[in-house]
Design a protein around this nucleic acid. Structure first.
Lengths: 205, 205
DNA sequence: ATTAATTAATCAACCATTCAGTTAATTATT
DNA sequence: AATAATTAACTGAATGGTTGATTAATTAAT
């Protein structure tokens, strides 16, 4: 409504708002241009801020990358936290869990291209590698706990939940990252049904 | 033997020798510094040649990258070609196959860091993506053919080898790429045994 | 008035790439 | 067998563009 302002520009924000905004911009820049193509200049341009502002907040690119990893990990972890299993019977808990890890929402939450870039970087960045390892360890423990519950209730037979959890994660992550290489669009639904069935099999070993 | 030569330097080679040498140097540079860190200068320095020589042979970096992908794919494909299944009984063929895909040699042939970098790049490079898709399609067909043979011989029950092959690849690639995140060194052998057993289960669905 | 958010201008380092020129090996000619 | 012609391997210097980073100046909020 102010007819004078020459350029609409960007409102001045505080760190609490700007920092996540920058991290998200970094993430989507990676999706578009890959990790190598995600320069600070591009990340800044995407949200119409000055490149220096990013350095002001993060100091250097390494820190920005580390905060991105935290962001991705949090998004990932949220999925597990939001699974509401309370009040369900032992059998339904397992059912629901399998439903979740093979759901479209779970698959699409973190774009594979993004997660791939981050894993690729983790191979020559110890700190990022440790962060990811922590994420997977948490995932594994979470699964193992559920598997044990189901076994105790007699829904499945299982005397080594941690081993079973490793099998499940292997299958889930394998699918998340590679299915688009060998599964055509027309057979995605069939593939997903097969995967759920396979998960049940692996649970019962 | 010539005592005069001031610097031992590098002998002059022909393209047949030099080009693969450059591609391999590119590969190991990626392992050390990631794809972003693998500049032409670094690739050249690693084998003591002039950076321009790389451009002389490959024209530009895109071409070098494409030839690297071919190299990795060939190394991958060799593994399957070298599996000698002739003369074995139907049951032994399946046995041998499972033994191979879960062997240390198969796992270590192409370093995960390298394959990850390439897959990551494939997400914003159509040509590389197509190459990888071709590789996986070949792998899937190869597996499916073997599965069908085993089913025909009555070793396993199976009426959809292509679907079964997709399950196996999912598990194998999932393990190749992620096991080091959640499987500790002390349980690798146990994990591998579990994986073979799981593969048998998935074969029999 | 102090502090925090933001921009501007600038830096050296590195990047892929070009091109013109040099050196060695191969082939053809005599 | 000697030499010239041709091709292939290789180098050095210069290109323009982009990178992450620094410093100082400006603007708004408290």
């Amino acid at each position: 409504m102010s007819p004078k302002s020459p350029e609409p520009g960007r409102q001045r924000q505080n760190a609490e708002i700007r920092k996540p905004e920058i991290v998200k911009s970094f993430y989507s820049t990676i999706l578009d241009h890959g990790f190598e193509g995600a320069s600070i200049a591009r990340v800044a341009a995407r949200i119409n801020i000055h490149p220096s502002l990013i350095l002001h907040y993060f100091g250097n690119k390494e820190n920005l990358t580390l905060e991105l990893v935290d962001y991705v990990i949090e998004e990932y972890a949220k999925l597990l936290e939001n699974v509401k299993l309370g009040g369900l019977s032992a059998e339904d808990r397992v059912d629901k869990l399998i439903e979740v890890v093979w759901s479209r929402e779970y698959y699409e939450k973190i774009h594979i291209a993004g997660s791939f870039s981050i894993v690729a970087v983790s191979f020559h960045n110890q700190r990022i590698h440790e962060k990811l390892r922590g994420l997977y360890e948490g995932f594994r423990r979470f699964l193992a706990k559920e598997i044990k519950k189901a076994a105790d209730a007699g829904v499945i037979e299982n005397n080594d939940p941690m081993r079973t959890a490793a099998r499940i994660i292997t299958l889930v992550e394998g699918a998340r990252h590679f299915r688009h290489f060998f599964v055509g669009d027309h057979e995605i639904e069939q593939y997903n049904r097969d995967m759920k069935e396979a998960t049940w099999m692996l649970l019962k070993i």
